[in-house]
Amino acid sequence: MNATTERLIQLALLVAVLGGWQLGVVLGVIDVFFFPAPVDIFNQVVAWVTNAGFYVHVTTTLTETVLGYLIGTGLGVAAGVWLGLSRSAARILDPFIKCLNAVPRVVLAPIFVLWLGLGLWSKVALAVTLVFFVTFFNAMQGVREVNPVVLANARLLGASRPDLLRHVYFPAAASWILSSLRTSVGFAVVGAIIGEYLGSSAGLGHLIAQAEGNFDAVGVFAGILVLAVFVLLIDSILDVAEKRLIKWRPNVAEKPA
């Protein structure tokens, strides 16, 4: 099937779902209290986007996400590389890591609010706990799966331990780490939003929580839509970053499926 046909089918699907939904609302089959009309949601989004106050919320969420993401990723990579290299440390810490990872992160939100207040940092902390483990496990795996032949070759060529870290371990782990960055960016947003949802004065999560408090389904749906676009934008930025950083890898997309 060629690309144009596929695009047309995608478009047809979108029109069918949204059109059906809108039609259902118009005909009175769908209750707008629970499922507001797509047109209303769209109008709400437009109203937000054209209002300067809306961007305060966006920047708040964006700051929390980026901070949580950077701190969580940094800690995750450092811990992952360390435990990937030191088997004994990994064995000693393994049960603790498993326990910590088993805790549903959302329940930590109230504790972070207690510790860090209702401001920015309680949300960042929640995002960090979510992001950390994804990056951590990937970095550890990446370091452990370094090709032993490549490693032996580098050692025979005279690489010292810092040389090995810089020229072998980090680049080998990089593709694992980068693929985890894509997953964890979603987690960073989840952390920020949930934190905001549970108690805050600004942010997209706050916006949704407010709408929910007023039984304003239009606002909730509009918030969800904005969030989806928000994550897609961050994801596309990472996409570009990944292509620049890992240019040595054969591009899988180039090969015929």
Binding site: V149, V150, A152, S160, H167, A172, W248, R249
Partner: peptide, 22 residues
């Protein structure tokens, strides 16, 4: 080596200059 032992993230030139670099 029998297997591919080049560092896949380095170009041919970068691979060759590894020994002198280290």
């Amino acid at each position: 080596f029998q297997q591919d032992a080049l560092l896949p993230w380095k170009t041919a030139l970068e691979n060759v200059e590894l020994g002198p670099l280290f």
